[in-house]
Design a protein around this nucleic acid. Structure first.
Lengths: 140, 140
DNA sequence: ATGGATGCAAATGCTTTGCACCCGT
DNA sequence: ACGGGTGCAAAGCATTTGCATCCAT
């Protein structure tokens, strides 16, 4: 199954970094692996709890930090809401947020990526990371 | 002088919106009009205080909200720091943050703007606002 | 004069942390 | 067994808010 496989991949990444796989971390990894949306810490806490794995909110935060440090997940900070998280599945993408519904959609644009790099280079910099968010409304 | 002129323009915008120009607001407008950088609420509070105009931090926040609502200033929310503010001088631009020094530089790219609009349109949306930040490092 | 604006301190919301106990390796 | 991990409650930070007082219009 897809989710289990993904969860295992996460575990391996952590183990490689010398991080212990505890009951609560395993639970969170499974929840994250199953996430189709972009849940925040509280939602992850809730999902883990509903799945029968008691985890404290503090541990959720601590685990998310560790996962982010390992590059296993990405932290998304949209305007005016708690941070959300998504599994880092390798392919970089940016986000489009429907301001009406809150729905988040992903998109990629090689051309924009290239332009960003060009602009930075022209000013004597190289890009470490970037953030591009489009707050949109469904067209009439 | 440049700064006074800018500050007056801010006052007019507020008066037009039926907002009273109090001593503390006038002081903050002057501080904002003089800001070359991108100060946060605490820095603005400090500057107003140093300039001899006592303003409470709560009022700084309340005034910043009002100014933002009038479109007179823009709120910038970079990663991992308190919100910063900049006077809205009409021309839209994005930001490049030097991760080493914290320095913020502005840039514009019509091409990126256009591509963003295209992408949104293709997906059936129109852009309400967007946020593009490049976290960069000086090139070797 | 009168309703919006201010100051203070308390409250909020998200996130982090100190500490004593626990458990994965 | 031992050192990292956990839970709990308390602390931290940026920001907001209730309320009594004040002042711009």
């Amino acid at each position: 199954m897809e989710i289990e496989h993904r969860a295992k991949a996460f575990e391996d990444a952590l183990r490689r970094a010398g991080i212990r796989i505890t009951r609560q971390r395993a639970a969170l990894l499974r929840v994250l692996a199953a996430a189709e949306d972009h849940p925040d810490a509280t939602q992850l806490h809730l999902r883990a709890t509903e799945a029968g794995a008691a985890v404290s909110l503090a541990t959720v935060y601590r685990t998310l930090s560790a996962l982010e440090a390992q590059g296993v997940i990405l932290k998304l900070e949209f305007e005016g809401e708690p941070a959300r998280f998504e599994p880092a599945d390798g392919t970089h993408h940016d986000h489009m947020i429907d301001v009406e519904t809150g729905e988040v959609r992903e998109f990629v644009s090689d051309r924009i990526e290239r332009l960003q790099a060009e602009i930075a280079a022209e000013m004597g910099y190289e890009i470490v990371r970037h953030r591009l968010e489009l707050y949109v409304r469904r067209k009439a």
